[in-house]
Simulated assay, not measured.
Amino acid sequence: MQLTTHTDYSLRLLIYLGIHTGDGPATVHDAATRYRISANHLAKVAQTLVQLGYIHSHRGRGGGLELAWPADKINIGAVVRQTENLQLLECFGPNSTCPIDPACHLKGVLGKAQQAFLEVLDGYCLSDLITNKGKLRKLLDVA
């Protein structure tokens, strides 16, 4: 299973905000530059995370982004569920046109695998991903 770029960037932005120091606001542009990714795409990701309640966005001079919750309250499994399309196959949706859907075991096997994947992610929160803040700050050149 491969996560979408949107989910990948959501997790990266949360990590960045989790390690960002209080020396000025964290901005989409700064995070995008440090990760070497598209600022336009990251801005859309930030908007999603604001709508989901994971981050706050402050406009204007001195504005920027910040976590809406302490890092130990942001569950990684929940973030992935809310930012990812978890319909692995067409038959996972309500309008399956697969002729073998009623007798197929693949859907059940993949459903169990997906559940196991999400259960592992449910065991982690953002604070678990940033226990090495010093190293992450160095790699991203965050003061």
Rank of each mutant, 00 (worst) to 15 (best):
M1Q: 02
M1N: 09
M1G: 10
Q2K: 14
T4R: 05
T5Y: 13
T5G: 04
T5P: 13
T7G: 04
L11Q: 14
L13G: 01
L13Q: 06
L13E: 09
I15V: 02
I15A: 12
G18V: 02
H20G: 01
H20S: 04
H20A: 13
T21F: 05
D23Y: 11
G24D: 03
P25I: 00
T27N: 00
T27S: 11
T27V: 03
H29V: 14
H29R: 11
D30R: 09
D30F: 08
A31V: 01
A31P: 01
A32N: 09
T33G: 14
Y35A: 10
Y35D: 12
I37G: 11
I37M: 07
S38F: 12
S38N: 13
L42P: 00
L42M: 03
L42F: 04
K44N: 14
K44F: 05
V45W: 09
A46E: 11
Q47K: 15
T48W: 00
L49R: 07
L49S: 14
Q51G: 14
G53M: 12
G53N: 12
Y54N: 02
Y54A: 13
I55D: 08
I55G: 05
I55N: 07
I55V: 08
I55A: 09
S57Y: 15
S57V: 04
H58T: 09
R59W: 00
G60E: 00
G60P: 00
G60D: 02
G62D: 06
G62A: 10
G63A: 03
G63T: 01
L65V: 01
L65K: 01
L65M: 02
E66A: 05
L67I: 12
W69G: 11
P70Y: 15
A71I: 04
A71D: 09
A71N: 08
A71C: 07
D72W: 15
D72V: 12
I74Y: 06
N75H: 13
N75Y: 15
I76K: 12
I76R: 10
I76W: 04
G77P: 06
V79Q: 08
Q82C: 11
Q82F: 13
N85L: 10
L88W: 00
L88V: 09
L88P: 09
L88D: 06
G93Y: 08
P94M: 15
S96L: 00
P99H: 03
I100A: 10
I100N: 11
A103D: 12
C104T: 01
L106M: 08
L106H: 07
V109I: 06
L110R: 02
L110K: 08
L110P: 06
G111M: 00
A113H: 04
A113T: 02
Q114H: 01
F117T: 03
F117A: 01
F117V: 02
E119R: 07
V120I: 05
L121W: 05
G123C: 14
C125S: 14
C125I: 08
C125N: 15
L129S: 05
L129K: 11
I130A: 00
N132L: 12
K133A: 06
G134V: 13
K135N: 11
K135L: 15
R137L: 04
R137E: 11
K138T: 02
L139C: 08
L140P: 08
D141V: 10
